[in-house]
């Protein structure tokens, strides 16, 4: 993995690294990816035939039980405004 690629992934993950960190990280990621590449040698051609027991997904009833949490919800917010969460302005 080169620095450019690492930078692209960092952007996707909303992480920021300085140049040294990027160099370091690219190296480490290359190492990890090279190691996990061993999976390519696993023969998974017959994997579709493996039938695992599959349970159906659990569901809930269409009932409203939660309401009026606004105050509780914003209690932990770093910068609340009235009942809102806030972020830096998104439009010009």
């Amino acid at each position: 993995m080169d620095k450019k690629e690492t930078q692209h992934i960092a952007k996707l993950a909303r992480l920021r690294f300085d140049d040294d960190e990027l160099t370091n990280l690219s190296e480490q990621m290359t190492g990890i990816l090279k190691w996990v590449d061993m999976l390519q040698s696993a023969d998974t051609s017959a994997v579709a035939d493996i039938s695992g027991e599959e349970k159906p997904l659990g569901t809930r009833k269409d009932e409203v039980k939660t309401a009026g949490l606004s105050r509780e919800l914003i209690k932990n917010a770093p910068e609340p405004y009235e009942h809102f969460f806030t972020v830096p302005r998104m439009v010009e």
């Binding site: 993950a13 909303r14 690294f17 932990n76 770093p78």
Partner: peptide
């Protein structure tokens, strides 16, 4: 950095995300 936990402010939304998470 929006609803709970640490926030490091930024000029744009993405900058706030990146600074906070980093």
């Amino acid at each position: 950095g929006v609803r709970f936990g640490l926030r490091v402010d930024g000029k744009t939304l993405d900058e706030m995300y990146e600074l906070t998470r980093s």
